[in-house]
Amino acid sequence: MSLFKNIWPLCGVVGLLIVCNTLLAHQQKEAYITLLFNKNTGNLEVSHRFLLHDAEHVVSALLNTDGPLATDQSAQQIFATYLKSGFSVSDSDLKPIEFKDVGFEVEGKYFWVYQEVTPPETNALNIEHVALQELWPTQQNHINVEKDGLVRSARLSASSPRAKIELP
């Protein structure tokens, strides 16, 4: 079941959380997700980069764990699972692309989550990423699709969580 089932209306608990966490006036809520067609491996690699402090809030506010991004693998796994459950990609025929989990890590101020897949033949990717947007309405998940040295981008927000990116 998606962890995102309650983003929108009629979700009392989440609704309160939305309100409580819109207060960070000077923190800019954004994450960067890179989808790289890696020529070396032949894989389509996905790197999700989220601010660790944002991740902490998600863990404590949405995921009902007993501490903010605790050290144990399970807490980080929960956050990683949360991120991935809000992320989906389909090919130009809208056939879902199933990614394989690679791992996750903390580096400096960022929390990274990694996935990869052998890419299907397609001339476009339909991408959705709604992570953190129920917590912060201003959250923007910035997508960079990199293939053959070219970058195609999209800004996914709660009001516009999907984008179709044509591949070069």
Binding site: N40, T41, Q73, V102, E105
Partner: peptide, 19 residues
């Protein structure tokens, strides 16, 4: 790539700073 490096260095361990 970031993912290749992650796999090669086996960095999949926890970070102790954020407990």
């Amino acid at each position: 790539s970031r993912i290749e490096a992650f796999k090669a260095e086996d960095r999949s361990k926890t970070d102790i700073e954020y407990r």
